[in-house]
Design a protein around this nucleic acid. Structure first.
Lengths: 339, 339
DNA sequence: CTGAAAGCGCTTACAG
DNA sequence: CTGAAAGCGCTTACAG
């Protein structure tokens, strides 16, 4: 890679490196004729300053890192969109990484982003409830932060960092109450990997609210699957194989609910006539499903915007932005059919 | 940002910069005891080499740029996923940019990626059919390529670069033939911005195949909208307002078809009983819609993988990977109701 | 206002 | 095998 350098520009403009640098950085203290020459030379040579050299000389970079579990998951796609919008407003580039829910890979990416001297590192994926992982993550984050790096996390993490905290537990509880309100007493839960804080919080909130009403789903009515469309599909099939269907099914994420919806249809079951179905997140497409999905609405793009904004505006102490999660009732849930 | 430096490591290990560098780069020519000391020091200091300094010294960087129109569009999300997977295999980080279909922003991002000395720049978004834009893009791409940068584009571009070319025109033609085969003669098209090559190619292929059968949709049956869910929703409403519905509607992208499907349902129309509907792309969710959507299948993740692979494996001359597009018939299309 | 020079944090011939 | 030194492409006090 032999790109044009500042030296080339200075030479063809007949000025010193310093002057060329000043012009290109918008300093106003340069004589007009020299400025012209430098601009012309840069233009003629299609010059672009080497961002690495600038980062080194200025000891600051124009990149920010965003780590998520999977960009192609609509939840993260929406969060990334919001975060990238804010980054663009600040003339920052974002390095995006997908861990595919591999804890080790998450840590490796943080390390890489640290090497890149990213201005900030955003952890958009749910944390893993695993002390060893937390320690390893901390071992990367701490030196990064001590060196001036900024960290912001989405959802509950143990990391000492600014955080955007969607009310997963409260949202799930509200949903449970709404479903109880429709008359349901017989529930199943399609859960994701319990090691993920987000999953744990949602399951917990849902169970707690049911318990308040004296309702407890049987253990075999809580099915674990991948936090994906296919995971939801498989979990729903597993549920069907375990015996009589409950009147209402809660999938801890919309992507799982989508898979479940199709599994139910394939089994000849109608939603909500035969079984009510609810999800969580309110990713864009669920309102276009048939029936439109009842879910817990999170302002996804907004979450991403806040996350980036938090990371970019240093504060004396840690900040926690709690974000309410609201139940959105749609046609996929209805009162249970009288037995 | 004052991170630990190689100098710190060398000092605490009691060796020279060169030796420390060698150990950390895996050189085998370093005495075992010194190697140990260096490793220990690096570990103790939580040292991470400065990627900018490395890029400068080695004249090569570990990043590759990916420019798309909108990460939160499932089409790009899937393409990005594939591209990122390949990047991860090569230990490369990807800088992701969304242009939101703003031609100027696209060029600005190419320029920024050039400044980052990205190893490769991938243009995943459809090109704009606009000579001024093409010139401006070329003005960025040419110096980048001359300096050794690699460029790969997805879908038809005029740029002199490696290309992955989904058969948009052929796929749309095949779809048209399949729909004619069902008995349809009365079509509408929900089209995106005609300045996009992808849109132009799909509309053209569809029209050509209809023409071969002596069928021509009336001009007011071709409605233009944004290439989004909302754009499809609006276009479908506009179509409805223009008079009697055709028997079959082709949306040039699945995201538009999703919006159209909901618009039809809101209007009390049943798909496919009252109107058949088909899309293009086969983004993951369309198989879970009710009815599942007939569409033209593109191997989206694969597209992204190929794009990245192409960019990473330099070749003596330009390569064009043509990717077939296959019709996938699902329940959203059916023979027209006898009049 | 302008330029020579030092420095950012690495890598890598080149000596020894 | 190891180290001193030059160099990567910039920026920015410091002189003048």
């Amino acid at each position: 890679m032999t790109h044009t350098t500042l030296g080339d520009v200075a030479r063809t403009a007949g000025v010193s490196l310093a002057t060329a640098s000043r012009v290109l950085n918008g300093s106003t203290t340069v004589r007009a004729d020299l400025r012209e020459k430098v601009m012309a030379a840069a233009e003629a040579l299609a010059y672009r300053p080497n961002a690495h050299a600038q980062a080194l000389a200025r000891a600051s970079s124009q990149v920010v890192g965003l780590i998520c579990h999977d960009v192609s998951d609509p939840y993260f796609a929406a969060v990334a969109r919001g975060a990238m919008r804010v980054a663009a407003d600040h003339d920052l580039m974002v390095m995006l990484a997908s861990t595919f829910r591999d804890p080790d890979r998450e840590i490796a990416y943080v390390s890489t982003l640290r090497a890149q001297r990213a201005r900030a590192i955003l952890l958009a994926g749910s944390a893993f409830q695993d002390p060893a992982w937390e320690r390893a993550l901390d071992a990367e984050l701490t030196p990064y932060q001590e060196a001036g790096g900024r960290v912001a996390v989405l959802s509950r993490h143990r990391a000492r960092a600014d955080a955007v905290l969607p009310d997963n537990r409260g949202g799930a509880a509200s949903l449970a109450r709404a479903l109880l309100g429709l008359g349901h007493r017989d529930f199943a839960v399609l859960a994701g990997p319990p090691a993920l804080t987000t999953v744990a919080d949602r399951v917990r909130g849902f169970r707690e609210a049911l318990a308040e009403a004296g309702v407890r789903p049987a253990p075999d009515r809580v099915v674990t699957g991948d936090l994906t469309r296919d995971g939801g599909h498989a979990a729903a099939r597993e549920l069907l194989s375990r015996g009589p269907l409950p009147t209402c099914v809660f999938a801890v994420a919309d992507v799982m609910a989508i898979g479940a919806l199709t599994a139910f249809r394939e089994a000849g079951l109608r939603v909500p006539e035969d079984v009510s179905l609810a999800g969580f997140d309110d990713i864009p497409v669920v309102a276009d499903l048939t029936p439109p999905l009842t879910t817990v609405t999170l302002p996804l793009e907004d979450l991403g915007e806040r996350l980036m904004t938090l990371a970019l505006a240093p504060a004396p102490r840690r900040r926690h932005h709690r974000v309410p999660a609201e139940v959105t009732l749609r046609a996929s849930t209805a009162p249970p059919r009288p037995a």
